[in-house]
Design a protein around this nucleic acid. Structure first.
Length: 425
DNA sequence: TCTGGGGTCCTAGGACCC
DNA sequence: TCTGGGGTCCTAGGACCC
């Protein structure tokens, strides 16, 4: 029995979530902005039809959006994360194996029935998701992940609103692959597709049929895998079990440039606290820590600096992270630079099940366990009463509105007091 | 004034070892 | 002219993804 690979995603996911909690946003143009209200990262179909492109900086389009009467929202990740969890829960019930690929996207495996048809299954899933979550989804089906991605793309382009396409049952796929532009093939980014175009390869079918030797020479095993996937040979593993995180990054752009060491240290402290917190939530330790800061990358005198320290013992301890990141901050700081971004990266994460002990150092172990207790108490208070209820002195920011989120929808589905009230009359 | 944030995988090249 | 050869491990950086 053959197995199909399915790819499912929420249509215009962030925009759909915003419309879900605020139906008055429906049938009008809507865009969602990235952190710091930087770029457009989601738009509904109305905004797309009005020619609003993805990834555009907001400040450049502000006027146009205004003129076109398009609604604008800052991103509300708490909301999107919650809707995503609900969506994945349903998908899991309807698929054999599920790989959660991103907040709005999943791969699944499914046995093909005797007649090979999966359209009935797909139709049913779509209506159940819409009924229970209120988000429209698109389903692409093929023999491999790349094919499933392409099928999903075709389903969206067809515009017959069926929201499902199965390229796996199509005997001769050439007509379809001919219509997939090379830069729309999953895995072929800017660089690779530019090189291919230069060679006269302009669509998925031509890429599939070009010399594998040439592909391998230029892009090695990565390129070869993509080509094989297009041919229907599965090369990209299906990961039903999420692999452990290998690194963790907390970084933000500032609402306004900063130039003092003190401000930099305050920001970095805040990120170090968030990062250690995430680490403990994941039950992991980190082995090294990097801090970085940068000026505007679009300006001529772009400046970026970073510094890394190895942690003596892999750990998840906030006060150790704070102390280390403070020292590193001094190393990356340069005066007279207008810094607009900073971050903390934790590397070489490992499970906290296997703790490295230092032998014969009782004093050290005692100190360590005191710190652990302190972290537990602080986590406990913050989990109960909100993230910054209690914190470390270094992270007190005078200007706490460090990132810009002017258009935030305060409606959420994770707190009962934020659920909209519906009045029946 | 203003251009996101958070990941993964792969490869080349250096350090080090015998 | 010519300066061993080969293996492993680690890191930095590129390319890509959403």
């Amino acid at each position: 029995m053959s197995r199909a690979i399915v790819q499912i995603d929420g249509n215009n996911f962030y925009a759909s979530c915003e419309q879900l909690i605020n139906p008055s946003l429906k049938r009008k143009g809507l865009v969602v902005l990235s952190n710091n209200d930087g770029c457009i990262i989601a738009r509904n179909s109305e905004a797309r039809k009005m020619g609003i492109a993805m990834g555009q900086p907001y400040f450049k389009l502000k006027e146009k959006l205004n003129k076109l009467n398009i609604n604008v929202k800052s991103s509300n990740y708490e909301l999107y994360g919650d809707i995503s969890n609900r969506l994945m829960l349903i998908l899991r019930q309807y698929c054999e194996e599920l790989e959660i690929y991103s907040i709005d996207e999943a791969f699944a495996t499914l046995k093909r029935p005797r007649n090979k048809q999966l359209s009935k299954w797909g139709k049913e899933l779509r209506s159940i998701v819409y009924q229970n979550i209120g988000i429209p989804i698109t389903i692409g089906i093929g023999d491999t992940k790349v094919q499933a991605k392409i099928a999903n793309h075709i389903a969206k382009e067809r515009g017959d609103s069926s929201g499902i396409f199965d390229i796996g049952i199509i005997e001769n796929k050439d007509d379809y692959l001919n219509r997939i532009r090379i830069d729309n093939v999953w895995g072929l980014g800017k660089k690779m597709s530019a090189w291919l175009k230069n060679k006269g390869i302009s669509n998925a079918r031509e890429f599939r049929d070009m010399s594998s030797k040439e592909v391998k020479n230029k892009y090695g095993i990565v390129g070869l895998r993509l080509q094989n996937e297009l041919k229907g040979k599965s090369c990209i593993n299906f990961k039903a079990k999420p692999s452990d995180r290998k690194e963790l990054c907390v970084s933000r752009s500032f609402a306004y440039p900063i130039d003092s060491l003190e401000e930099l240290q305050q920001a970095i402290s805040k990120y170090a606290i968030i990062a250690s917190n995430k680490l403990r939530q994941n039950n992991q330790f980190a082995s090294s820590i990097t801090v970085f800061t940068a000026t505007n990358r679009y300006s001529n005198d772009f400046f970026r600096s970073e510094a890394t320290a190895r942690l003596e013992i892999p750990n998840d301890n906030t006060s150790i992270m704070l102390k280390t990141s403070q020292e590193l901050s001094k190393r990356i700081y340069k005066p007279y630079r207008k810094l607009i971004k900073a971050g903390v990266i934790l590397h070489k994460l490992q499970s906290n099940k296997y703790e490295q002990k230092i032998l014969f150092k009782e004093e050290h172990m005692q100190k360590k366990s005191n710190l652990e207790n302190l972290n537990k108490v602080i986590d406990g208070i913050n989990n109960k009463h909100g993230r910054w209820t209690i914190s470390w002195g270094t992270s007190i920011l005078e200007n706490d509105s460090i990132t810009r989120r002017e258009k935030l929808s305060h409606l959420k589905t994770t707190k009962i007091e934020n659920i909209p009230t519906i009045l029946a009359n």
